[in-house]
Simulated assay, not measured.
Amino acid sequence: MKYNKTVMTKLINEHRELHDELKRIKAEMGLEKNLAIKALYHSAVADNGRYMQDYQDLERRQ
């Protein structure tokens, strides 16, 4: 499974808790949006993360 910004953005838009986490990452770490999205991918999706199945489903629909 590879990181795809478009799929990750759709996932964030579908899950309010991911949206809130993205805002928190940007604020706490001072990251720009693209880097914060990538960080969120690695913490919530990659390596059997909580949202891995939802991410894969979106990836298949694309």
Rank of each mutant, 00 (worst) to 15 (best):
R61N: 12
D57S: 06
R61A: 12
H15V: 10
R24F: 15
L18C: 03
K5P: 01
E14C: 06
K26Y: 03
L31E: 10
I25C: 03
N34S: 15
D47F: 05
D54H: 13
T9K: 14
A44T: 04
K10H: 06
I12W: 00
L35A: 15
V45E: 04
M8V: 14
Y55I: 10
A44H: 08
H19W: 09
Q53V: 12
R61H: 05
M52F: 08
Y3A: 02
L22M: 12
L18Q: 09
R61K: 08
K23F: 03
A27N: 10
L22I: 13
A39Y: 10
M52W: 02
K33H: 15
N13Y: 09
E14P: 00
A44R: 14
T9S: 11
Q62L: 14
A44L: 01
D54F: 00
K10T: 06
L18R: 08
M52C: 05
T9V: 12
Y55L: 11
D57R: 09
A44Q: 13
E21W: 02
R50F: 05
Y41I: 04
E21V: 07
K2H: 06
A46E: 11
E17H: 07
M29K: 14
T6A: 11
A27C: 07
K38D: 08
Y55N: 05
K23N: 15
V7E: 02
A44K: 13
R60D: 12
N13L: 13
D20M: 13
V7D: 01
D54K: 12
G30S: 04
N4S: 12
D54M: 06
N48R: 15
H42L: 13
N34E: 15
N13A: 11
R16I: 11
M52Y: 08
E28M: 08
M1W: 03
R16M: 08
R16N: 09
V45M: 04
H19N: 14
M29H: 05
I37D: 01
Y51I: 04
E59D: 12
K38C: 02
E21P: 02
N13H: 07
M8G: 01
R50P: 01
I37Y: 00
Q56E: 12
K5F: 07
R50Y: 06
A46F: 06
K38F: 08
K2C: 01
L58Q: 06
H42A: 08
K23W: 03
E14N: 15
L22G: 07
L40A: 03
L31P: 01
I25L: 15
G49H: 10
Q53C: 00
K38R: 14
T9H: 01
M52D: 12
G30A: 05
T6I: 10
L58S: 03
D54V: 03
D57E: 09
I12R: 02
D47A: 09
K23E: 14
A27E: 15
L35R: 13
H15C: 06
H15P: 01
Q53L: 05
E14K: 15
E28R: 06
K38E: 11
Q53S: 08
E17R: 10
E28G: 01
E28L: 09
H19L: 15
N4G: 00
V45D: 02
Q62N: 07
Y41M: 04
Q62F: 05
E59T: 14
E59I: 12
